[in-house]
Design a protein around this nucleic acid. Sequence first.
DNA 1: TTCCAGGCGTATC
DNA 2: GATACGCATGGA
Length: 269
Amino acid sequence: MDYKIDGKDILLHQADFALDDTLDCGQAFRWEKVSENAYHGAFLNKQLTISCENGSDLFRLHNTTESDFLNVWKDYLDLDTDYAEIKRRLSEDETLSKACAFAGGIRILKQDSWEALSSFIISQNNNIPRIKGIIGRLCEHYGGYPSAEQMKDETVESLSYLRSGFRAKYLVDAISKVLSGEIDFKAIRSLPLDEARNILMTIKGVGPKVADCALLFGFYRLDAFPKDVWVKRVLSLWYPGGLPACTKGLEGIAQQYLFHYIRSQKPAE
DNA sequence: TTCCAGGCGTATC
DNA sequence: GATACGCATGGA
């Protein structure tokens, strides 16, 4: 990763990174494609437009500061991790090798814990366009993604404008458990995966899959392996005997390459 | 009209 | 512990 300042922008050279792969692969729900080579989105209360110069490894972070780049976006976009090395390891497996080649620009975003947890509560038994719609209405209402504290007075009724269906009561339970301290993000960070998962699953509407998504995308737990309907297809089609050994410790990253890859396959296969 | 979507709670065995 | 079913909403 090397960068330079160009007026109000940051110009970044970055290998193993593609905007479509990373920002539109189902790990985050509020990046919007604003042109062929550009996305607009946000992390916490900071917004960003990022574009790519014609499929190259040259990116432009528009209208930002060197300080925000170094303190916020560099970490959020996981630019310090060597994905070339990760892909080399995973590519010991033939199918994963294809998946890495198909979407070699995926990076795991280091998202906000509450946003990831609540977003994946909304995601259950739902499709990505509708998930984006619900989260879009939530952010429009609050002028950005609301914290659990900001949502403290929400009820199933007050959330009806989201049209999130049966998931509204799960959001209300998550808000209350986070605000009461019953769910302590700081504590979860230091726990083994199984214990962290079990604590998250005390929230109504949080089962194994939502808990693993929250841990992978909201706590950067790369060994969490969310099994949604697509990944269950991956396992039954390609890995009936379980994941190959080369994924050890990187199950979550492997999951993301495989998720993106199988979604691109025609149903006929 | 029916089926499905980055699942989970509940009932039942 | 496993299996079956309902669940809000909206697009295909």
